[in-house]
Design a protein around this nucleic acid. Sequence first.
DNA 1: CGAGCTTTTGACGGTAGTCAACTGCGGTGG
DNA 2: CCACCGCAGTTGACTACCGTCAAAAGCTCG
Lengths: 249, 249
Amino acid sequence: MRGKPAAARIPCRQCPLLNCKGLRPLTSEQLAFMEQFKQGELSVSKGTQVMVQGSLSPHLFTVLEGVLLRFKTLEDGRRQVVNFAFPGDFLGLQGVMIDPLTHSVEALTEVRLCIFSRERVGELFKEQPDLGFDITWLSAKEEGALEEHLTALGRRTALERLTYLAVFLFMRGRETGTTVGDRLKLKITQSQIADTLGLSLVHANRTLQRLRRTNIASWSAEEIRIPDLEAAIASAKYEVISRQPLPFI
Amino acid sequence: MRGKPAAARIPCRQCPLLNCKGLRPLTSEQLAFMEQFKQGELSVSKGTQVMVQGSLSPHLFTVLEGVLLRFKTLEDGRRQVVNFAFPGDFLGLQGVMIDPLTHSVEALTEVRLCIFSRERVGELFKEQPDLGFDITWLSAKEEGALEEHLTALGRRTALERLTYLAVFLFMRGRETGTTVGDRLKLKITQSQIADTLGLSLVHANRTLQRLRRTNIASWSAEEIRIPDLEAAIASAKYEVISRQPLPFI
DNA sequence: CGAGCTTTTGACGGTAGTCAACTGCGGTGG
DNA sequence: CCACCGCAGTTGACTACCGTCAAAAGCTCG
């Protein structure tokens, strides 16, 4: 896990997440606590592994900027992308509870992370119960996302899965201000898409071409564009869960 | 959601979960808190829906006894089983954060549940931060299980999925004292298995027959028997996560 | 310009889904 | 008592979706 640590330490009261529309801002007391709870920052470039499956993780992270990929690897090399992380997402909670990490995390873009110490989490729960509650909230929301992915893999056709993923990523992007109009700029390889949706690379490619022809979403190597979100949601059979502003940090 | 509520209210200090080997017992202070936090008990018979997708849930539950099924339903009727709940598992956390439930919960056996009020969760986090932390732990563990299921659906063959599920259920049973020797008594229909593993009913049936012929697991309608757990784990390519005693309640 | 990665295309085979029918079993009611 | 029903499990035949193998084309970067 390389990367310039603490390149530019920004005080929490200037945290970019505070004016992110999809996120609920912290109270000033909470901000004061976070200020001393925060250990530093980590900036990594695209492709960097932030966490490695099987290793021990001394840190927790909050994503300040960028998009990451969480994935598991089987011994024989098969990979499964488990979820994506957007700004405001909390990474490494499992590492606190379960010793060796059960998945890896890799940066899909340039990424800036906020670092916390794993040892001091108990302290957070004691001194700021509301923040502890928020962490549980985030964890429950993550669980909900995994359930959606699970039904996508289990019960949706390849084309539905692709549209589902397009909509999912687009909406996560919109919540976290990563999106511009009906476009989400995000470079993902088709291999990563395949590993997310449980498809082979070849089949993912063919289905992606089929998706492009439907005009429901235009998904290029550079960006995802969804002209009619309602229509896309319907055709993905995506049940949108209620969009309350998420807590963070 | 029918069922005799509070049929027999057992004090927490006699909770059957306390001497469950896979679970970490509570301190006496925590027990005292839980005693007044607990609202009552709910006993339901096999097949009962304890929670219904789309409805609001006023309660949280801890499983005292029995096994349940969590599943999502698409509008067109396709079903996806998301996970199973064994004694000690915590149900309904998502209902606290996200308003309408995103999945249903159904009893697979006779089940006894401990009921908590959704409104008072904040109180628990404030007064017993350690318990709040434990809830987060449970949530993180659940997340880990979902990730395993996800890679099963995405990257394993039908036969591997079946063995994976057999091993998964057996080990959960063993953790929670539901198992006897190398047997887990548990009635599951092949349709439920199919909906768990993302297979069609017919194909699940055929693969199950194939699994029986391998002698790795004998999975009848009544029970799962795994004579050689190590071998089964290997052939399922199941990466066993470390088995620390779980917290509960 | 060549190396290496990602995307694309073709051909082929196998895995898994669908449709349909039949069996076996337990419960219900005539 | 047994016919009848519904449900779970089983089997066969057919199809199609999807994976694998292989190769070529496009791209970026040193």
